[in-house]
Design a protein around this nucleic acid. Structure first.
Length: 501
RNA sequence: GGUCCUGUGGCCGAGUGGCUAGGCAGAGCUCUGCAAAAGCUUCCACAGCGGUUCGAAUCCGCUCGGGACCUCCA
């Protein structure tokens, strides 16, 4: 049973075969740190975090490279091309790098909140100007780029003509046909410098007011939109690597341009498998700066955005995202998130209880064979579903079929001996593996500490005494006032009590 | 306008032509001093119209709706 991934390049699911096993190289486009990350960013980073974790579970040694775009990309909103970061820096009266640092820190904070593992390498665009310039020089030398007025443009038409013959036309990834695009490309500025409308910038001449600028063979300027990813993926993963990931909105033009640049420099397609996560929508629309419907991650976690009825924890959001398959759009809403919050809680509580049990299962004649078989099948399908293009939604559905089994054993509706000891051990192990190790889910519980736990145990003991005296006034008072503080007490079947925060 | 995706029950979502997805919400029951939690049971579905097929949510066509990309974008 092997891993199959949907490859955007071939538009079909393909068996995943690394170039040089057990090593796997994976590049994922990171954020532009000119502003705070929003809910939309959560999806690719959580999706590819799970890919990273799952590949490791399968035994691969993964080098996961995720860049930080801290320079060079510019906006063309009608008038003059300007560096996004330096433009905003002027407004905020900050050094560009101070801004970059601020948003990088916020981004790292959000990633750790989501319990995303840090990538193996997190290169910055500003740290790789030299590599980018070298790459551009190479592309010019090969005749696929030209200088115009201090800027350098990639000659898409020439590339398309030459590489179509090799079966690698410009548009190979996105399925676009270059001829169709000429007419549909909008009017942009500085078009007169380009030979063709579809040409894209490798290097942009910096206007006088531009703060971020670097010396180059073509004068002072900054790198174009797409070259950093080509330069850094090549540097850290080689001319050909296994997986390239990112959001679907990057497929064109960003990834298409990456392919063109890298193919010219390295004489082969850069990545074998191209994975694209779908968008998160809000009221049916993609979330993005252009739509003015952005929920920043700090607002999401604190519930301070007007759309939000409450705060949603990073674990809830992560769970919500994993409840769908990564190639489907996912519609964000309060009802959906509140549902995920409760579902996540129920799952984790069953999981936590199970992990604490040490004497469940048997080897005798008390085993319920049908149940035992069902549980084993549900567990075995974890791998089956993940191998089918990472269907986390189906894995979670199976987990929810196991929850009533676990809770029934807890409540003694099902005998503790009904499952084989081996089944119980497997259940504990695989739930831990998939829930914690692969999905990276954590309990929503606040960090408990020993002192708090001690205090709560004290209150629980007082309440137990009260209950035994049938002093329900006192016992309800303790329960209600703790509930008001956000601590929920539960009376267990056997007379015990537990709490959740 | 061009290219492409999509339309599943109150909400979110799996779905490989034939087998209960799952979660949340709702209803009933069990347990409980009462609650909560949990368990059991249950209601609600495949946008519409045609076609292919023994059989379609799943394939094809048309209609209507939604979205993405073509411009920085996860």
């Amino acid at each position: 049973m092997s891993l199959k991934l949907y490859n955007s390049l071939t538009r079909q699911k393909e068996e995943f075969t690394p170039i040089n096993p057990p090593y796997v190289g994976m590049y994922v486009c990171g954020p532009t740190v000119s502003g705070e990350s929003h809910l939309g960013h959560a999806r690719p980073f959580i999706t590819f975090d799970v890919v990273f974790r799952y590949l490791q579970y399968l035994g691969y040694k993964v080098r996961y490279v995720r860049n930080i775009t801290d320079a060079g990309h510019f906006e063309e909103e009608g008038r003059e091309a300007e560096d996004k970061i330096s433009s905003k820096a002027v407004l905020e009266k900050l050094e560009p790098m101070e801004l970059v640092q601020k948003y990088t820190n916020l981004y790292h904070w959000a990633m750790s909140q989501f319990n995303n593992l840090p990538p193996s390498i997190e290169p910055t665009a500003t740290g790789h100007i030299v590599e980018q310039i070298e790459m551009i020089k190479k592309i010019i030398a090969d005749g696929y780029a030209y200088e115009a007025n201090g800027s350098v443009y990639f000659d898409v038409d020439k590339y398309n003509t030459d590489f179509s013959a090799k079966g690698q036309p410009y548009g190979i990834l996105s399925g676009r046909v270059l001829d169709d695009q000429i007419d549909s490309t909008r009017e942009l500025d500085n078009q007169e410098e380009k030979r063709n409308k579809s040409d894209f910038a490798l290097w942009k001449k910096a206007p006088a007011e531009h703060i971020m600028r670097w010396q180059s063979p073509w004068g002072e300027g900054f790198p174009g939109w797409h070259i950093e990813c080509s330069a850094m993926s090549t540097k850290y993963l080689g001319k050909e690597f296994d997986i390239h990931g990112g959001g679907m909105d990057l497929q064109f033009p960003h990834h298409e341009c990456e392919i063109a640049q890298s193919t010219v420099c390295n004489h082969q397609l850069p990545a074998r498998y191209w994975l694209h996560n779908n968008m998160i929508t809000i009221n049916g629309r993609k979330m993005g700066k252009s739509y003015n419907n952005v929920i920043k991650l700090s607002e999401l976690f604190s519930g301070t955005h007007p759309i939000l009825e409450q705060a949603y924890s990073p674990a809830t959001v992560r769970f919500f995202i994993l409840q769908s398959q990564y190639r489907s759009t996912l519609d964000f809403g309060n009802d959906a998130l509140q549902g995920s919050e409760k579902a996540h809680k129920r799952l984790m509580e069953a999981f936590d209880w199970l992990q604490q049990q040490n004497d469940l299962g048997s080897t005798g004649t008390n085993i319920d064979a049908a149940l035992d078989e069902k549980v084993n099948r549900l567990i075995a399908d974890f791998d089956t579903f993940m191998n089918d293009d990472l269907n986390t939604a189906k894995v979670i559905a199976n987990m929810f079929e196991l929850v009533p089994v676990i809770n029934s054993i807890k409540d003694k509706h099902i005998a503790a001996t009904a499952l084989h000891s081996n089944t119980v051990a497997l259940l504990k192990k695989q739930l831990h593996t998939f829930l914690i190790d692969i999905f990276g889910l954590q309990n929503n519980k606040a960090d408990n500490n020993d002192k708090l736990d001690g205090v709560l145990q004290l209150l629980i003991n007082i309440r137990k005494d009260a209950k035994s005296r049938k002093d329900f006034v006192t016992s309800d008072k303790i329960r209600n006032e703790l509930a008001a503080l956000g601590v929920q007490l539960k009376d267990e079947k056997d007379g015990g009590m537990s709490y959740t925060i």
